[in-house]
Computed example of a mutant assay.
Amino acid sequence: MAVERPNKNPYSNFNFIVEFDGTEVAAFTEVTGLDSENTPIDYREGADATSAMRKIVGIETYPAVELKRGVTGNLVLWEWRKEVRDGGTTFPPVKQVTIKLLDEAHNRNAPAMTWSLTNAWPSKLTGPSLSAKGNDYAVEQLSLVHERLDIS
């Protein structure tokens, strides 16, 4: 459940955790794509030739959610992606993904806000860009498609 701050100051965007089916399996450095959109449909009744078009609500769509993390050698994301590629026991192998925004005290039991992705599965796993010229850490990116986004 969302918790509004008494002082009205915004929460910091770096205090978050990501869970797959209720378990935190990896630490991510960035999450983007927590969007929801309804495409408007222009509508006019056949006998109503004089008035302007009405806008009615169309299908809700969601972009892929992008998760970035440093490469640690943990293959849990690759194993999930491989299930999609190879056609695992359930296809696609969906999970409930939860992104929790935490307060400054890192209270995991009472997150400030929670985004829930229903029936999410990895459509793409991007490996790191490797270069001997820099000192950045290696980052991989996971693209998740999903059927619904809910916020609480």
Rank of each mutant, 00 (worst) to 15 (best):
A27N: 14
V97Y: 10
G70T: 05
L102M: 07
L102A: 09
W80E: 01
K133R: 06
G70S: 11
E104M: 06
K82A: 15
N38C: 09
P6M: 09
T61V: 14
G22D: 08
K68G: 08
V71K: 06
L101W: 01
P63H: 00
T90M: 09
G127E: 07
E147A: 12
F28Q: 05
V65E: 01
E30I: 03
H106F: 09
S116K: 13
A64H: 07
D48E: 14
D21R: 04
F91C: 01
E30G: 05
G46E: 07
R54D: 07
I56F: 08
T114A: 05
V94D: 02
K95Y: 07
K100N: 07
D86N: 11
G70I: 01
F28C: 05
V31H: 15
D136S: 13
P6Q: 08
D42L: 11
I151L: 12
N7D: 15
M53H: 12
E83C: 09
E24C: 05
P128F: 00
S51R: 12
M53T: 13
L130P: 15
E66Y: 00
W121H: 03
V84N: 06
E37Y: 11
M1G: 03
P122M: 09
M1C: 10
G33F: 09
N119T: 09
K82L: 07
S36C: 06
A27S: 15
N15Q: 10
V3K: 15
T89A: 15
A26N: 13
T114M: 11
E4M: 08
R44V: 05
R44T: 06
V18N: 01
T61Q: 14
F28D: 01
N109A: 11
N7C: 07
A26I: 04
G127D: 15
E104G: 12
I99T: 04
P63R: 06
V65A: 03
S123I: 09
L34K: 08
S36Q: 09
T114Q: 04
M53P: 04
G127P: 12
T126I: 02
V94A: 15
T29A: 14
T126F: 01
R81K: 15
L67V: 07
G87M: 05
S143K: 02
V84F: 08
F91T: 03
K68R: 06
V94P: 01
P92A: 05
V139F: 01
R85P: 01
E37Q: 11
N7H: 07
L149R: 07
K124M: 06
V94C: 15
T61D: 07
G33V: 13
E60C: 10
E66H: 04
K68E: 07
P93V: 10
R69K: 10
V84D: 02
E30A: 15
K68P: 12
R148K: 11
H106V: 11
K55E: 11
R108C: 03
L130K: 07
A120Q: 05
N13C: 08
P111K: 02
V145T: 11
